[in-house]
Write a protein that binds this DNA or RNA. Structure first.
Lengths: 110, 110
DNA sequence: TTATTATATTGCAATATTACGATAAAGATT
DNA sequence: AATCTTTATCGTAATATTGCAATATAATAA
């Protein structure tokens, strides 16, 4: 059918999956890498940095913004994008529980 | 065109994205959650646990296995799946660098 | 007001994903 | 051997994603 059955899963599972999904493309990983590297947040420089057309980048930025991983700030006629720490910290919480559980796992059959 | 331009990105970016992508579906997050919870690894119980048809689960397990997030072990006519710690630890390394950089970021414009 | 610059949106073609019924494969049980 | 159990694969319909040219939008500069 091609439609993810989100209603079958918990809100947390859906939220986590949507963040992972947003990060599930090398261009979007590259955008995050770039925003982390530049320290101050950069706008259309991303378009110059990445070897993709401007509309494509714009689309990727939109997806990252939709799940709250980045924020956009209007500065004149340009837009300044940057990491949204809040979402990352929330994401980190989930990951911490995963890695904690993993550490305690012993009876791993494989 | 519908084809991800992996050749434009680094191996690490592509690898990270592929792991994120594999985790970018609530059913696959639920599978990981379940494998973490059960401690000893479970096989076809996953099919009973999740409200999806057996072929669908099988497909999701395959995707998780393809990126190395889980391992499968034949036990009689059943198969025992479990977390592949190695990949998770590798994944954690990337995430640690991200969160470290994030912590040092100060000139965040937004 | 008319460019110019920067970003977003639209529309579309190519491809990928999701889900599942039907069926295959392979070991276990009778 | 015949059957049951468990999991994988095939085929396919519905939907989503990726990428970009063309165009729209909106602020700035001339």
């Amino acid at each position: 059918m091609g439609l993810t059955r989100t209603e079958f899963f918990t809100e947390k599972q859906n939220k986590t999956a949507s963040i992972m999904k947003a990060l599930g493309h090398p261009a979007r990983i590259a955008i995050i890498d770039f925003l982390l590297k530049t320290d101050k947040c950069i706008c259309g420089d991303i378009v110059e940095e990445l070897p993709l057309a401007q509309p494509t980048i714009s689309q990727h930025l939109k997806e990252l913004k939709n799940v709250g991983l980045i924020k956009g700030n209007i500065e004149g006629n340009a837009i300044c994008y940057c990491i949204n720490k809040k979402t990352f910290i929330e994401f980190q919480k989930y990951l911490t529980t995963v890695f904690d559980k993993l550490e305690k796992q012993e009876n791993n059959c494989c």
